[in-house]
Design a protein around this nucleic acid. Sequence first.
RNA 1: GCUCGGAUGGUGGAACUGGUAGACACGCAGGACUUAAAAUCCUGUGACCCUUAAAGGUCGUGCGGGUUCGAUUCCCGCUCCGAGUACCA
Length: 930
Amino acid sequence: MDYQFRDIEKRWQKFWAMNHTFRVDNNSEKPKYYVLDMFPYPSGAGLHVGHPLGYIASDIFSRYKRLKGFNVLHPMGYDSFGLPAEQYAIQTGQHPAITTETNINRYREQLDNLGFSYDWSREVRTSDPGYYKWTQWIFMLLFNSWYNLESNKAESIEELIKKFENSGSQGIKAVSDEDAEIFSAEQWKLKSDIDKQTELLKYRLTYLRESTVNWCPALGTVLANDEVKDGYSERGGYPVEQKKMMQWSMRITAYADRLLQGLDNIDWPDPLKEMQRNWIGKSVGALVRFGLNSGAFIEVFTTRVDTLYGTTFLVLAPEHELVEGLTTPDHIEEIQNYIDQTKKKTELDRMADTKTVSGAFTGSYAKHPISGAPVPIWIADYVLAGYGTGAVMAVPSGDQRDWLFATKFGLPIVAISDAQLDLDMQADPTKDGLYINSGIINGLNYKQATAVMIAKLEELGAGKAKVNYRLRDAIFGRQRYWGEPVPVYFKDGLPQLIAMEDLPLVLPEVDKYLPTESGEPPLGRAENWKYKGDLEYELSTMPGWAGSSWYWYRYMASQDDRNQDSFAPANAIAYWKDVDLYIGGSEHATGHLLYSRFWNKFLKDLGYVVEEEPFKKLINQGMIQGRSNFVYRIIDQDGRGTNKFVSHGLKSQYTTSALHVDVNIVFNEVLDLEKFKVFRSEFADAEFILENDKYICGVEVEKMSKSKFNVVSPDDIIERYGADTLRMYEMFLGPLEQSKPWNTNGIEGVFKFLRKFWKLSHDDEFNFKVSDDEPSKAEYKALHKIIRKVEEDIERFSFNTSVSSFMICINELTDLKCNKRKIIQDLVIVLSSYAPHISEELWTLLGNAPGTLSVAPYPVFNPEYLVENEFSYPVSVNGKTRMNLNISLSLSQAEVEAIILSNTDLEKYLEGKTPKKIIFVKGKIINIVI
RNA sequence: GCUCGGAUGGUGGAACUGGUAGACACGCAGGACUUAAAAUCCUGUGACCCUUAAAGGUCGUGCGGGUUCGAUUCCCGCUCCGAGUACCA
């Protein structure tokens, strides 16, 4: 039989499932290796060819590690809470659980078709009550914890209460809300229970507070910053407004410094680490107070306290609370106008408008903290209320924005360093040179000046050193149905945790998935849903990132462990520890990957897990973009669309509008006209203007999405070429990290390769036939080259080059007509991580027990087979290659030089000159310098 | 603007620590087999020049410089493309 991929692949997929081939044990003598994929949200569109890119890579790696003798944990699951299923529920009334179940089954079928070696017995679904019980449990731990800055870790809230009872809040170093009170032990004891709870909430790592949130009226929900694009919701594109609301928050800022430091010890791509660093946004500087006549002060944050003497004005954000009081009567109109103007500007306007300099003078002055000189106070929208203190000290000689502002409004620009140049043209932020015009720091350098300045400010009580972060606490509530219920009820207006034994708090049934008439979240619709019969539950649910912030630990629990009373057994965590390799997209850089690190550190502090960082090594796979096809509808004189379509090359002669057309009815940009007529019923009697009797479609590279009709499903490709071909082709496309548009051109080459491989061990009538003769030296050489190459390539995640090398190897062996058992047997093992189905089939045909391939030992590379006696040296003159000479590798430089110089063919290149020098690199090159 | 990537034949890409640029594959062209087509197999394929041919030469990794015996690789300056981020004091 010829290479019957469909039959082979189906058969082995069934075999693996029935024999639990990839089930992994938590007890093993072997070293552990944990390979994780970012689990998908099971969307209704199913998998497209872009999804498996990372999964294929991780599967190859997992299979390879098994061959190398590791006990490999390679699980898969579903991030199954989320907005799309809820939106579908709102439209159709179908319960999101049903939609989700259907989608998961479809995903599973598609994943199985690809022959992945997942241990499916460990599957997780975030929407499963048995799973979210533990998401709720972690929430409760966070609620019962505070961050002790002395031990630099999270501790039980009971410890904090003890401290309060013993010595009050004075001297406690903790991360807390800014309005945390200072009280003595006696005062604490006198507080009512409600007051005590209110105070403790300011320390808990998950806490309730009023915060401004992105409220989307159309979706009836709060959105995360990263779900809002330019003032509109990312999904659906509805307007989003700012609204104050009581929200659950996570005190991730307590971990800002550890999140930053941890980046130094993990093997992640540099761009991704850089994104997290920027997101956390640590800046070291100082808070400086500028006194006001009223006795109050304006506090600013600066990273350049050394430039204090260059401050010629202050700028407040228009929203700053002091603006109203500072505005003098003659400036009220101007300031009010400016504030109104700012309010009108949408975020979009503000973004587009970074070049215009605008602002208004309040009429008031503050006092310079050291010199006492009057400093005018302005407002401007380039100062953001949400960062630092919402006020800056403007140093036009050192900061370009301040310089532009000063230049526009005629404010003074004072040089503060002897190294500053050309202040007429632009600001000069240099730290070089010695200070001038700067009172107490004149003549000092940058480092000295900063220290002197901070000491002076502290002495005067006018400032102090301060570290500032851009990172905000993460909002943890969503006004949605399809998410984890927050395990909290309210008593006397205060949040209380439900009892541990009442977990999981199961998502109740509702009649509709919309907010209630009074604007409460959908859970407000649930009937008789009260704690202990009469206490109100929290009605918001957790955000999408809750379930994904700890899921890799749940995989450590085998199916038998799942009923035990822990999120994962301690001995399993002690064994698997952390994820050795994590593969996923870089779009999760500042979301999932940051929150997961946060929760991991928290769980570590409490002793539940053993590693500080959850993901030791991370690889970002590139995004596979779609290739959209377009047809061009002719627009008539009235501007209406006709039912006539013109081919791409002729469209300039007409007024047209471009329409996406299903890429599956277009072949090499030629539209299948009959299929187009049934593509949509309105096109049933479409007419066409053709070029060369063909309708040519337009092309564009875009994100793959259902609405653009450019989704290519792996199913069709597997149907035509098989899973092994698809797996190898996706790897062959290029480096894993690189983004690229999907293109099937070239898949034939991979398919032909697998057929050639099959034919190696089959005769012309396709009967399996191998020889037991001893392989030749050339055959061993081909084999050992690939053994080494694949090992090297996989270790550095260069999967595309392995595929090329496999092709070279099979081409060589085909030329040698090699069908030696000894060669093919090892080759099958080496290829099995890439093309597991064909490999299993041949492995069995070779007489091995079915299913044993996955744990066969990876062949040992023997360098002896690759030893060469001679090398064909490129001989170059002044760097230009002129000829190749076969020379023994055992010769010394002097002997080689003698051979070279006696070579008569070389004379014409030497132009009669004597070589000045001969460069000889053994096994590489000979270069003659004349 | 800032940060991080990237630019190599008609196309996807290879060249791992500076050592024969274009591996491998697609596409294309020619040929074999076939009544024919498909499939398969063989040959050629960076550009230009020279030559009847064999052979040979020049240029060539976005652009301009530099270091080096030797640069796709290292350094400096620039152009363009992509991603992320948005006035962060």
